[in-house]
Structures are given as C-alpha cells and as structure tokens.
Write a protein that binds this DNA or RNA. Structure first.
Lengths: 136, 136
DNA sequence: AGTGCTGGTCTCTTTTTGAGACCATCACTA
DNA sequence: TAGTGATGGTCTCAAAAAGAGACCAGCACT
C-alpha cells in the first residue's frame, strides 16, 4: 500500500527536481501541456498539420476566431517552436505559417489524444449529461 | 495542391457536421481537448492514474493548488466522467477520488503527450529562449 | 478618390483563474 | 467544557486571460 505511494511520490519528486526545486506547478511537463491548451491551439495545429496556411486562409477556415486571437495564438505557437512564420514580399505582403519539425513531432503525440476524442467524445458527452441530470 | 485543401476541408466539414451544423468551434474534439486543458487537470489525472486519493491527500500532494481550484477541478473531472467520487461516512466524512474506466482510457492517450513532454520539454524551452532573445 | 484585400494592433468588456477567509462537524485533550 | 485540529467544503473578491470590434498602413484596381 505504501509502495504505490512511494512510486508516485518519487515521480512527483522527479518533476519537482526538474522544475528547479521549486514547486510542482512549474514542472516542465505541465508547461508543455499548458502550451497545448488554449481554445484555438489544437484547432490551428490540426489545420497546419495538414499543410501550411496563410493568415487570411486560417481566418476563413476558423470563422469564429477573432483576428486578435489568431494573431496571438500563432505568435504563441511560434514562440514555443511549433510553428514557422514566413513573410513573402508580395504586393500586399503575405505571411505563411507552417509546422516546424518540433511541431510535427509534438503533433504526433497530440494526435493520439485527438483520435481518442474522435472515438469517445460521445461517451464524455453522455457522462456530462448524466451528471447534470443527477445534479438537477 | 488543391487536393490537400480538399482533404482538410473535408475533415473540418466532418467536425462541423458532428458539432451539429454550427461552427467548428463547438466541435466535440475541441470540447474534449478543452476538458484536458486547465492548469490542474493534467496534474490531478496523473496523480489519480497512480492510485485513488482523498481530498486532503491531493491537496498535500499539490501544495500550490487552492482548495477552491481543487474542488472545482475534481468536480469538472467528475462531470466529464473521468473521475469517480465516493464519500465514506467516517467520523469526519472522508471523500475518495479515483479514475473511472473512461478516465483510464483517456489517460492512456493523454499519456503519449506527457511522455513527449518529458522527452522534449527542453527543446520547447530552448525554442522559447531563442525566440525571446531574437525579439529583444 | 473610393473600395477592397493584405495582416495586423489597440481598447474595452466579459469570462475564467486564483488566493484567502470563512464554515459545520466531530474527536481528542487539557 | 472550552480549545485545537482534522475532515471537505463554500463564498467573496482581485487578477489574469479571452474575446469582440474599431482602427491602421500599404498597395491594386476601377
């Protein structure tokens, strides 16, 4: 019974150590997971995993994203090294966004979760409905 | 060149269709991904994947979570069907949280991302540092 | 000169997160 | 029998993030 506790404690201690001795909340794993979170990041990663896109194309592809959030999300993804941004000096300068190797690598792992979601989203929906019903 | 566009368009159209004809933003996949997001959800899922825990144990395990967020995050996880909550009628009633089958199933996929994060968090860190330096 | 497309930035409002105080119950202890 | 600590919460309010919408500069076409 204590064995399991020690397993977890050890694991969390490792994270704690990696995170620089501070608290677990800053652990790098959480940092990366946070990087995947965000309302639009997964959607944009999925789009860019298919092929590179221009700013306006992405905006049209995801109609209900505001320009501000599109700009900011792409900036964040670029900052984390997942997305490459290239400006072409056309008449009205156009900007193309594409996945980097790191981005593709991350998306490979992230894809597992997407696949799970595709298969199980109705189970989650059902659980939520049941729960809400039982609380009413 | 247009072939790829059609691929993505088709995929996104599928999501759009699943989501009930509305816009892509409500697609169930995004909904599930959102469910995984949140500052504490991954950490609590990792803890509960190890073994069931009581409220106070979790609070001690993750020292920098506030009681409010612990309550709420566990509530959300329970609502999504990932976590089971059981109250024991001890003298001061104790509450135990454990993963459901759905929770374990989801964690299996999510685990891929955690493993990737464990292996590559330094690359992300480096990318971020580079980017910040180049912006300065 | 006016319109539209390019890819943004700036400001303001709403929503989400988070920290901290407060609460009710029971057991043990002085 | 009043004080202390442990149980698992809730409530209030401040800070941070997300989001909507106006505005901007440059160039082409009409």
């Amino acid at each position: 019974m204590d064995g399991k506790v020690i397993n977890l404690k050890a694991k969390l201690e490792v994270y704690k150590a990696i995170s620089g001795g501070g608290n677990i909340a800053n652990c790098p794993v959480r940092e990366v997971i946070q990087g995947v979170s965000g309302k639009w990041r997964s959607l944009l990663m999925m789009a860019l995993a298919e092929k590179p896109y221009r700013f306006g194309e992405l905006r049209r592809l995801v109609p209900d994203i505001s320009q501000r959030m599109l700009t900011q999300t792409l900036y964040d993804l670029q900052r984390d090294g997942y997305v490459h941004r290239e400006v072409f000096p056309t008449k009205p300068p156009s900007v193309e966004y594409s996945l980097t190797d790191l981005g593709r690598s991350m998306f490979g792992a992230f894809h597992q979760l997407i696949l799970w979601a595709e298969l199980n989203h109705d189970a989650v929906r059902a659980a939520r409905a049941d729960f809400d019903a039982s609380q009413a």
